[in-house]
Computed example of a mutant assay.
Amino acid sequence: MNKRTCLYERHCQAGALIQPFGGFDMPIQYTSIIDEHNAVRQHCGVFDVSHMGEVIVKGPDAEKYVNHIFTNDVTDAPIHKIYYGMMLYPDGGTVDDLLVYKMAPNHFFIVINAANIAKDDAWMREQAKDFDVTVDNKSDYYGQLAIQGPESSAVMEEVLQIPCSEFVFYTCKTLEIDGEEIIVSRTGYTGEDGFEIYGSTDFIVKQWDRLMASHRCVPCGLGCRDTLRFEVGLPLYGDELSKDISPVMAGLSMFCKMDKPEFIGKEALVDQKTNGVAQRLRGIELDDKAVPRHGYTVLKDGNPVGVVTTGYRLISVDKSCAVALVDSSLKLGDRVEIQIRRKTFPGTIVKKKFYDKHYHK
């Protein structure tokens, strides 16, 4: 049986379409994916992302331990700085992609993907055996809201009375509200300005109700969360990253700090960067309005050369696009085809970002 977030009843009352995702029953849409997508691009939308996992790492070896399991570099990180990166297997495959929050000296708050909570928790505990740290999975305690869009800062301040206009991109802070300590951050997974609120499940329900009563933002499901992140080239674990897709293959080497003394998977990534990889993720823009989907075959001159990881008719730019894992010999501008049911549709290899981000920096 799937888990449910603290807002499940609210989603049902609002008439949301509920479907399984990452082991949870989650809202996919309330009105339509197009309407919710456009609300985030133009105004403000709010997502229940309480299905995400949260792990707290503390102890004298916390920094050393996080640097060991994480591809990015948290050495002497400023307090309240946030880092994006991956945990890797020794062969370079991806355990998960995650956000690491530096909360205090030797104290890190780590956000992981919902479908990977049990796997990540076991992996992190196994790697912690040689370090003086505690690994505390707090996923059942925390709920999380994501307030996203160009009006998100005004909504945060005017509706929730949470000061945030001075927030720097990819930073966080702790606040005392209603007698509990909450975490607020400014990252986003939509390509728009946005904030995340982490707190107890009771606190999150109260904030959701305040937001809905204000009519300043619309509830958004995971359907438009996927279309939004895809347009701006952000990966989804299980599609663009997996145990079989390394950061090098995914074009995410910038988040792997090869000048660190060591991290799990570093040797494999060094080898991939030195000797190359057989496949890489590439963007594809179709000539036609046909819609490519996950798992569809990519062909070059009639021969299979890869497979689609994500594909949509893009809402913001009205084009049919895909990201696909294809032979690394394919370059920008090359012509390919995508098999969609019994027909093939021509397209061009392009960059994976189809729409420009509008982050507040």
Rank of each mutant, 00 (worst) to 15 (best):
G45M: 02
V270A: 12
E240A: 09
P20N: 09
G347P: 09
F169V: 00
C12R: 15
K129R: 15
K319Q: 15
M249K: 09
L222C: 05
V57L: 12
V248D: 07
M86W: 03
G149I: 02
G149M: 07
G45D: 05
K319T: 14
G179L: 06
V66L: 13
N116I: 06
F24H: 05
K138N: 05
H11M: 03
I197E: 02
G23H: 10
Q148P: 03
V168Y: 10
K361V: 13
Y170S: 07
A118G: 09
F47S: 01
S139M: 04
C321T: 13
S214I: 12
T31C: 12
I112Q: 01
L332R: 11
E231S: 14
V218A: 08
I112E: 00
Y30L: 10
D271P: 02
D318P: 02
V270Y: 11
R280V: 14
N38D: 13
V323F: 03
R4N: 12
T171I: 12
H11L: 03
D121R: 12
S253V: 15
S328R: 00
G276E: 10
D271T: 13
K351W: 04
C164L: 09
G347R: 01
P150K: 06
T94S: 13
D244F: 07
E285A: 14
E9V: 09
M124F: 15
G45S: 06
Y142G: 00
K266D: 01
C217F: 06
F263D: 00
L236I: 14
K81V: 04
N137S: 06
A62I: 01
S320F: 03
E63N: 04
M26H: 04
D327H: 11
C321I: 03
T348G: 08
K300I: 07
A154E: 14
I245H: 02
Y101M: 10
D244R: 06
G59M: 08
I245V: 15
V49M: 14
Y296F: 15
T344M: 05
I182Y: 05
C224R: 01
C224V: 08
H68C: 12
H215G: 09
S200V: 07
Q339K: 15
G191D: 04
I340Q: 08
S253C: 11
